[in-house]
Simulated assay, not measured.
Amino acid sequence: MEDLLRECAPQVLAAVVRRYGDFDTSEDAVQEALLAASRQWPVEGVPERPRNWLITVAARRRIELLRSEAARRRREEDAARHEPSPGLVPSVDDSLTLLLLCCHPALTTASQVALTLRAVGGLTTGEIARALLVPEATVGQRISRAKQRIRDAGATFRLPPPEEREARLVAVRQVLYLIFNEGYTASSGVRLQRVELTAEAVRLTRQLRARLPDDGETAGLLALMVLTDARRPARTLVDGALVPLAEQDRSLWDGAAIAEGVALITETLARAPIGPYQIQAAIAAVHDEAARAEDTDWPQILRLYEILDVLAPGPMVTLNRLVAVAEVHGPGAALRQLDQVDGEPALRSHHRVAAVRAHLLEKSGDLPAARAAYLEAARRTLSAPEQRYLAQRAVALAP
Score class of each variant (00 low, 15 high):
V243N: 01
K147N: 12
A230M: 09
A241K: 12
R151A: 05
L192W: 13
E200G: 04
Y177M: 07
A129N: 05
I128A: 11
L176S: 10
S187T: 08
R145S: 13
E164S: 14
S188R: 15
G240E: 10
R206M: 08
A241I: 08
Q174I: 00
R149F: 11
P244R: 13
T138Y: 02
A167V: 10
L204Y: 00
V134K: 02
V190F: 08
R168V: 10
A171T: 09
R145E: 11
L227H: 02
E166T: 14
E136P: 04
D229I: 01
R232E: 15
Q193D: 02
A199I: 07
F180Y: 14
R165A: 08
R232K: 09
L224S: 10
L176D: 09
V226P: 05
R158Q: 15
V190N: 08
G220H: 06
E196T: 14
L222S: 03
R165P: 04
L221M: 12
Q148Y: 10
L133K: 06
K147L: 15
V243M: 07
A167Q: 13
P233M: 05
L245D: 12
A186S: 08
S188P: 00
L169E: 09
L245A: 12
G126Q: 01
D214T: 15
P213I: 02
L204W: 02
P161H: 09
Q193I: 07
L192C: 10
R235G: 02
V195E: 06
R206P: 04
L204F: 03
P244M: 14
Q193M: 12
L159N: 03
E247H: 11
D214V: 06
L245H: 11
R232L: 08
R158V: 14
P244L: 15
A131H: 01
R203H: 01
I143S: 07
N181T: 08
S144P: 00
A186L: 09
L221C: 12
P161K: 09
T125R: 15
I150K: 05
A246K: 07
P233T: 04
P135E: 00
L204Q: 07
R130I: 03
K147F: 09
V139A: 05
R149H: 13
G154T: 12
R165E: 13
L212V: 03
L204P: 06
A199Q: 14
Q193K: 13
Q207C: 05
A241D: 14
S144K: 13
L132I: 03
T125W: 09
D229C: 06
G183W: 10
V175R: 02
E217T: 00
L159G: 03
G154S: 11
T185H: 12
A223G: 06
G220Y: 03
A219T: 08
E163D: 15
